[in-house]
């Protein structure tokens, strides 16, 4: 039984997470197909066809998918599900919105945030915000998996796989897109960034928090914050990294003036390399940091920015 991957795309481009979801699907050992649903998505389909390991791309091109609403997408996905052994999508806000809805329509459960494929029926996933890892087995004939993309390395490119058109189906059921606001920030998106620079209460004020921007700019990094910094009003909570905020797993995470409360560690322990900059050498953040600098961040941060 093959795997079907729901392709996420914005503005005519596939999400970088898709290449990582294909990597996860390759570990299942089944042939991989991709489903592109959208409006005028010829270019997206062509990109999906080049993901190394995809043997066929199905395209449902119709105005009803223009706004990527979960209702018609889940109906489409569930209608195709019967022919597959696996349905996969990235555990992004898009995948999280659509996939469980499709699973329920197909009458099966979902295994969320898979970080490892142990065998074709057994998967590892973090629970309690990553404080624990569960190994779960599913014997359902259709396994629906959302993939924590950062846990898998992207696949490369291949000669394009064949592309086939499928019939559009599914209704919006009374849902209507009104508007969207993509953040105007030049910084990359927090959960997708390769480098994250986060600040904590140690920064001392809203004004000082902007000191992070210099280093973040040099590293093309996203800016994050600890809960303490959010609670102190330095930044809005959309930047919060932690158990109740965003879970990030960048290649490099730089924690500045963050003591390392459990709440925060739960959101960033998946980073490949962690750097901590803190005045207090006893701070718990140093227990998880690969590299630490102990000292005054108001001296270290400008120096780091200058030398990068």
């Amino acid at each position: 039984m093959s795997s079907l991957i729901l392709i996420e795309h914005h503005d005519g481009r596939i999400s970088p997470a898709c290449a990582r979801v294909v990597a996860a699907a390759r570990k299942l050992g089944a042939p991989i197909e991709a489903l592109v649903a959208g409006y005028r998505v010829e270019e997206v389909a062509a990109q999906a066809a080049r993901l190394d390991g995809v043997s066929r791309v199905l395209v449902a091109d119709d105005a009803r998918y223009a706004d990527q609403l979960a209702e018609p997408l889940a109906t489409l996905l569930a209608a195709h599900a019967k022919r597959y052994g696996y349905l996969l999508a990235a555990a992004s806000t898009f995948g999280k919105d659509v996939l469980p809805r499709a699973a329920a329509l197909a009458g099966v459960g979902q295994i969320s945030e898979v970080i490892e494929v142990v065998d074709p029926a057994t998967f590892k996933r973090p629970i309690h915000a990553g404080a624990l890892v569960a190994t779960v087995r599913s014997d359902a004939p259709l396994k629906v998996l959302s993939i924590r993309a950062t846990a898998f390395e992207s696949v490369g490119e291949q000669a394009p796989a064949p592309i086939e058109t499928v019939e559009a189906q599914g209704e919006a059921l009374g849902a209507r897109f009104v508007e969207s606001h993509r953040e105007a920030s030049e910084r990359p998106e927090l959960t997708a960034a390769r480098v994250v620079v986060s600040g904590g209460r140690g920064l001392g004020s809203k004004q000082n928090f902007s000191l992070l921007e210099g280093v973040a700019g040099k590293l093309d990094a996203a800016i994050g914050a600890s809960r303490a910094a959010v609670d102190a009003g330095y930044v809005s909570n959309e930047l919060q990294v932690g158990q109740t905020g965003k879970i990030v797993a960048p290649d490099l995470y730089i924690a500045v003036g963050i003591s390392g409360a459990m709440q925060h560690l739960a959101g960033m322990q998946g980073a490949k390399v962690i750097v901590a900059i803190n005045r207090d050498e006893e701070a718990p953040i140093f227990q998880v940091a690969d590299y630490g600098l102990v000292g005054d961040l108001f001296e270290l941060l400008p120096e780091l920015e200058r030398k990068l």
Partner: peptide, 17 residues
């Protein structure tokens, strides 16, 4: 689904200052 195991993830090694 069946939960086969629940474990504490391998703790990160304390790095260097």
């Amino acid at each position: 689904t069946e939960v086969l195991a629940v474990e504490t993830p391998t703790p990160r090694q304390r790095g260097v200052i």
